[in-house]
Computed example of a mutant assay.
Amino acid sequence: MEHSRLHELIDRIGMLLRTEARRLGANASLQPVHLHALEYLQRCNRYSNTPAALRAYLGQTKGTVSQSLKLLEREGYLTKHDDPDDRRVVRLELTPRGQRVLADTTAAQAWTRAEQTLSGQEREAITDGLERLLKGLQLANGGRTFGICRSCRHFQTVSEAEHRCGLTGEALSDSDSERICHEHEWQDSA
């Protein structure tokens, strides 16, 4: 197999981020998987804040996610509540404590500082390339894409300030359109 410098760099960046997550998690008595769960809940949309969507996103077993959610709820990082429209569905929400632990992460601050060493054009080119790589890996592995609403084939622009999900028919705010969705499908999925 041919050596890939790109794979090596992505792998090394991932290792550094996981190391930082372990350090931060230890400071808050959390494992990296707990921080990843909180980060997901911070970034997901209103269709995707369920235990099942979290489990699919993390690629973890039902038992692992269930235990993680119990710990995060017990420690006050998130709350669970029944969906008002479908009592069978449980919704997850970050608490102020959960939001604080994410805001206090020096990993995010270190990433922001590192990212600022790139020009806007470089950031855009790297982001576009990594999105294509991610899409390729997700499609090759038959996994859910968990992309941002704006990049989904169901995303519809009604006007400059109005958006809609073509799958659910519901209105989407600008904020909604920048969030992760478990129903995401790439626009050109062929």
Score class of each variant (00 low, 15 high):
Val101Glu: 03
Glu185Ala: 02
Gly142Tyr: 04
Asp11Ser: 15
Thr95Ala: 03
Lys70Ile: 07
Gly136Asp: 07
Gly147Phe: 01
Thr95Glu: 02
Glu124Val: 10
Thr127Trp: 14
Gly136Asn: 09
Ala125Lys: 08
Ile180Gly: 02
Leu133Val: 14
Thr19Arg: 14
His34Lys: 00
Arg87Thr: 12
Tyr47His: 11
Asp85Met: 12
Gly169Asp: 01
Asp11Cys: 09
Thr112Cys: 10
Cys181Thr: 13
Gly169Ser: 01
Gln31Gly: 05
Lys80Phe: 11
Arg144Ile: 06
Asn45Lys: 05
Leu94Asn: 02
His81Thr: 15
Cys152Gly: 00
Gln60Pro: 06
Gly147Cys: 05
Arg153Phe: 00
Asp174Met: 08
Asn27Val: 12
His81Glu: 12
Asp174Asn: 07
Ser173Leu: 04
Arg164Gly: 03
Ala110Ser: 13
Gln99Met: 12
Leu167His: 05
Gly136Lys: 07
Glu122Pro: 01
Trp111Gln: 09
Glu75Gly: 04
Gly59Glu: 06
Met15Tyr: 09
Asp188Trp: 10
Glu2His: 12
Arg12Ser: 11
Pro84Asp: 05
Tyr47Ala: 04
Ser4Pro: 05
Ala56Ser: 12
Ile13Tyr: 13
Arg164Ser: 04
Pro84Gln: 09
Asp85Gln: 14
Gly129Trp: 07
Ser175Ile: 10
Leu139Thr: 10
Ile148Gln: 05
Gln156Ser: 05
Leu167Gly: 02
Ser151Asn: 07
Glu185Lys: 03
Pro51Gln: 03
Trp111Cys: 15
Gln60Met: 15
Leu24Ser: 14
Glu20Met: 10
Asp104Thr: 08
Leu58Cys: 05
Ser29Gly: 13
Arg55His: 04
Tyr57Ala: 13
Gln42Glu: 12
Leu102Met: 04
Leu167Cys: 02
Asn27Gly: 15
Asp82Met: 09
Gly25Asp: 00
Ser119Gln: 02
Gln60His: 15
Val33Lys: 02
Leu167Ala: 04
Leu130Ile: 13
Ala171Arg: 11
Lys135His: 13
Ser159Lys: 06
Phe146Trp: 05
Leu130His: 07
Ser29Asn: 14
Gln116Trp: 06
Gln187Met: 09
Ala161Lys: 10
Pro51Met: 01
Leu134Ser: 14
Leu92Trp: 03
Gly143Glu: 15
Ala52Trp: 15
Arg46Thr: 09
Ala114Met: 15
Ala114His: 09
Thr106Phe: 13
Leu71Phe: 14
Leu172Trp: 03
Trp186Ser: 00
Leu72Cys: 03
Pro96Cys: 07
Arg88Glu: 12
Ser68Asn: 11
Val158Thr: 07
Ile13Ser: 10
Asn141Tyr: 09
Arg164Thr: 03
Val101Phe: 05
Leu9Thr: 09
Lys80Thr: 08
Thr79Met: 14
Gly136Phe: 07
Val90Thr: 15
Ala107Tyr: 01
Arg164Cys: 04
Thr106Asn: 14
Glu162Phe: 05
His3Cys: 11
Leu35Thr: 00
Glu115Pro: 06
Leu17Ser: 09
Leu133Arg: 08
Glu183Gln: 10
Trp111Tyr: 15
Val65His: 02
Cys152Gln: 00
Leu38Met: 06
Leu30Gln: 00
Asp174Glu: 10
Gly98Val: 01
Phe155Gly: 00
Glu170Gln: 13
Ala171Thr: 08
